[in-house]
Write a protein that binds this DNA or RNA. Structure first.
Length: 870
RNA sequence: GCCCGGGUGGCGAAAUGGCAGACGCAUCUGACUUAAAAUCAGAUUUCCGCAAGGAAGUGCCGGUUCGAGUCCGGUCCCGGGCACCA
């Protein structure tokens, strides 16, 4: 709490409202302004308290406003943040805006207004909505990824990637969306359509920036063992990285002039079963090795395959297609001639784009071989009886001279080693993970801090600032000329977006920035990073070269890859965050957000974090040690909420009708946080009634404290015991993110409160402290009215007394043959013999024992007595 | 096809291997009220029974156990993810 210098304000605001009934319209804004004036949620970077950093996935401020899914996750983290503060932690609970993105740009294309103004409008609206929910964010740390003070450091991180050779340029087939006029990452294409907008996409060759995430594949995979994440999310990342161990094997071609053909296989042990080879249609050797009499067929097939999108290629899985090339390779183990086919079930992008086909032990090869009547040779036997082909399971080798009888994993090792000894193969690891396509042909994104220069000018720059440049220059060839990528010096950042005439991308695939000649074509000072339009005279002095700026911008993921670090020290102008802040706060102790980011944001952020770790910027190897996904809230009809279905719930409506305390409570009471659950307006009434009941039990009809609540009142014994149970359960449940059962327990307590003839102020206040993280406004109001000093949140979390929880009597359940036959209150410590005697005497139990011999007695003290009879 | 989740009253759900259905919704009955709302008291898994009581019951089949919603094997259905990755 930082109340210094604000004593008078504090006084004014500590007072409760004057309302007589539970008037949330008055209470909620009142306490929100109290918190704001007191800076109640400011986190300090200097503190002797233990730290706790709880992070939400920051929202994209869309024009539609807050969706009900936002407050679900945000309420969960807010409860935890408030609880941890009460437990004496210095809590960092920040929020910001992931504000670059396509919708703002599309809006700009339509209206001609700058995307920044639309974005700012949306932020204002989001902020209003989020503030109305009463979340305990430290607004002094608010960040906006489109703010040059922020993206300066996004660009800085890119420069580090660039310097380490982790960013390069490549002309490659990419997903191009004609409607959006931009390329999309693999991850942004769903079922052949753009993830945003659902427009069709096609393949195009374009010059792109690519980040070498594959260099980190092994660590991204291995370090999943270190994090406390949902198992399903870890599995998804594992599958996405897709590691497989196998071997690269060289097959000599019959036409030895062409050199060997390199294939990748995970099953080198089946080498003797290879009856044909397949090259992807794009494989560079196809042209050279195709026999003249097959050329026409192969050419036709390649053209057909090129016209297909990846989707069609994979979608037409039912029937395989391919053509024979007329060429043959020689099997390195036995010199057998193997025909080479061209087929699009082999993908150029994985392995070497060429395979050895073993139809007996691979389903795809089996299907292909059957269709084209190619031989099938079994080399693995499942052991007993006939092996049904294709057999992809366990077994030992057959028909493999020198290896017969070996279990396949052993044979795999041995054959690989033997091939390696002869120099015709080696063990390798392959990943499905591809390098990350990192550029977009858009306006509304971070500009790349890169200027393209000539070879001679690059050499000049290298002499002046070699340490900023990668070991290998990044280049691309355009109409015979080679262009060199020269980074801006870090001191010249941020590189801001110029204003443009039109937000429409150019039809050639370049972003709207390509039309801004004055920004684009420049005299560039290689040491200072200063720029002057090339239309002006060459400035005096050394270090000026002619350059053209990079016109691509970064994808939306860039800003969200490191925002959790900026919150630690959001105003720092000298670094993305100070080393002290990075050391004190570390990484989030808990990260809550939707499961839809399982392989996108969460993989990219891990990659950047590891690079920053290697640079010595951050002290930990993983950014998010504990992750939790909130479930999706469905519409009332049990369907996914959507505008077209008309089942969308707007948080504003609920705040207006029931108040945010009710909304927050309801969102948490709906079911387990991680579950998918339907919205039910009736349920809101239920939790609202609970809050009204709490109010009524503590405040009388006249608006004064209920006469039954007083300092001198003696609580009924059961109420005291229940209070301590409730303190324990609510605390445990908050720690375990089981908010629904915590609320149930508070409801049970409220019901007891109602029945109690007298309640001590201390008990009432302790209960309000438990309620405060969930429904903070009403808790503050009642706390204040009961004479609590300051904020309810400033009071240390109540402790439960274990002694109060132990009862003197417990209910013992009597079972006969495992069936419940009766029960009885017994003193704690009742022995088995006594319990047995009680059971025999019990009128409900006795008839079931009559005339039957007792075989066994199971006794769980204080719980159960099970009598097993004949 | 493969990999994850999940199937419990009319509904949302709860249950360290130990009384299945806490808590809430909805419904019904009663009290208060001229009346309604609100509030309060009570009932509400199914079947048999006037009742006392009994029997069955956590998708389905089987197993382990004194005892299974919970653990194991199989199976069906629903949701999510991946999908010609050699």
């Amino acid at each position: 709490m930082t109340g210094r210098g604000k004593v008078s304000l504090w006084r004014v605001h500590t007072m409760a409202t004057k309302c007589i009934d539970y008037n949330f319209h008055e209470i909620e804004p009142h306490w929100q302004s109290f918190w704001e004036h007191n800076g109640s949620f400011r986190a300090s970077n200097q503190s002797s308290q233990p730290k706790f950093y709880v992070l939400d996935m920051f929202p994209y401020p869309s024009g539609a406003g807050l969706h009900i899914g936002h407050p679900e996750g945000y309420t969960a983290t807010d409860i935890l943040a408030r609880y941890k503060r009460a437990r004496g932690f210095n809590v960092l609970h920040p929020i910001g805006w992931d504000a670059f993105g396509l919708p703002a740009e599309q809006h700009a294309v339509k209206t001609g207004t700058h995307p920044a103004s639309n974005t700012q409008n949306n932020i204002v609206n989001f902020k209003r909505q989020i503030k109305a929910l009463g979340f305990s964010y430290d607004w002094d740390r608010e960040i906006d990824t489109t703010d040059p003070k922020y993206f300066r450091w996004t660009q800085w991180i890119f420069l580090q990637l660039f310097r380490r050779g982790l960013a390069y340029v490549d002309e490659r087939p990419v997903w191009w969306c004609p409607e959006l006029r931009t390329v999309l990452a693999n991850e942004e294409v769903v079922d052949g359509k753009s993830e945003v907008g659902g427009f069709p996409v096609e393949r195009r060759n374009l010059r792109q920036w690519v980040l070498r995430i594959t260099a980190y594949a092994e660590r991204l995979l291995a370090d999943l063992k270190e994090v406390d994440w949902p198992e399903s999310t870890k599995r998804m990342q594992e599958a996405w990285i897709g590691r497989s161990e196998g071997a690269e094997i060289l097959f000599d071609l019959e036409n030895r002039a062409l050199g060997p053909l390199k294939i990748f296989t995970t099953r080198p042990d089946t080498l003797f079963g290879c009856t044909y080879m397949v090259l992807a249609p794009e494989h560079p050797l196809v042209d050279a090795l195709t026999a003249p009499e097959h050329r026409a067929d192969v050419e036709a097939y390649r053209r057909k395959a090129a016209a297909k999108s990846d989707l069609e290629r994979t979608d037409l899985a039912k029937e395989k297609s391919g053509v024979f090339s007329g060429a043959y390779a020689l099997n390195p183990v036995n010199g057998q001639r193997v025909p080479i086919w061209v087929a699009d079930y082999v993908l150029m992008g994985y392995g070497t784009g060429a395979i050895m086909a073993v139809p007996a032990h691979d389903e795809r090869d089996f299907e292909f071989a059957t269709q084209f009547k190619l031989p099938i040779v079994q080399v693995i036997s499942s052991g007993s009886g006939e092996t049904k082909l294709p057999h992809v399971g366990d077994g030992a080798l057959v028909n493999s001279p020198g290896y017969d009888g070996l279990p396949w994993p052993e044979a795999k090792r041995k054959i690989t080693a033997d091939l390696a000894a002869r120099g015709v193969g080696k063990a390798t690891v392959n990943y499905k993970l591809r390098d990350w396509l990192f550029s977009r042909q858009r306006y509304w994104g971070e500009p790349f801090p890169i200027v393209w220069v000539s070879a001679a000018d690059y050499a000049k720059a290298r002499a002046l600032r070699g340490q900023d440049l990668p070991a290998e220059p990044v280049t691309f060839k355009d109409q015979g000329a080679v262009h060199y990528a020269l980074p801006l010096p870090a001191g010249a950042l941020p590189l801001e977006l110029p204003n443009v005439q039109s937000y429409l991308p150019s039809g050639t695939g370049e972003s709207p920035l390509a039309n801004e000649t004055a920004w684009l074509e420049i005299w560039f000072n290689v040491t200072t990073g200063a720029a002057v339009p090339a239309s002006q005279p060459l400035p005096a002095g050394d270090g000026w070269v002619r350059g053209r700026r990079e016109t691509n911008t970064m994808p939306q993921w860039a800003g969200s890859c490191w925002y959790y670090l900026r919150f630690l020290d959001p105003k720092n102008a000298d670094a993305l965050a100070s080393p002290e802040a990075l050391r004190y706060w570390g990484t989030p102790d808990l990260y809550v957000g939707g499961a839809e980011h399982a392989v996108l944001h969460l993989l990219y952020a891990r990659f950047w974090h590891k690079v920053l770790f290697d640079l010595g910027v951050v002290p930990q190897g993983e950014p998010f040690k504990k992750l939790f996904h909130q479930g999706i809230i469905l519409g009332e009809d049990g369907e996914k909420m959507s505008k077209s279905r008309g089942n969308v719930v707007n948080p504003d409506t609920i705040i207006e009708s029931h108040g945010t305390d009710t909304l927050r409570l309801y969102l948490m009471f709906l079911g387990p946080l991680e579950a998918m659950k339907p919205w039910n307006p009736r349920g809101i009434e239920g939790v609202h009634r609970f809050l009204q009941k709490v109010w009524r039990e503590l405040i009388g009809a006249d608006g004064q404290v209920n006469p039954k609540v007083s300092d001198s009142a003696a609580d009924p014994a059961e109420l005291t015991k229940l209070l301590h149970e409730t303190i324990r359960k609510v605390g445990d449940d908050i720690e375990g993110l089981r908010f629904n059962t915590a609320i149930s327990q508070m409801m049970i307590f409220a019901n007891a409160l109602q029945k109690a003839p007298a309640v001590s102020t201390a008990t009432a206040r302790a209960f309000l402290q438990l309620l405060a993280p969930f429904s903070p406004h009403i808790a503050e109001e009642l706390w204040s009215r009961l004479g609590g000093s300051g904020s309810v949140m400033a009071a240390p979390w109540p402790a439960y007394d274990a002694a109060r929880l132990t009862a003197t009597e417990v209910k013992l359940v009597f079972q006969v043959n495992g069936k419940h036959r009766g029960d009885q209150l017994v003193p704690v410590g009742t022995t088995q013999d006594d319990a047995l005697a009680l059971a025999r005497a019990n009128p409900k139990v006795a008839p079931h024992l009559e005339g039957r011999a007792v075989k066994r007695v199971v006794f769980v003290p204080g719980k159960i007595l099970n009598i097993v009879v004949e």
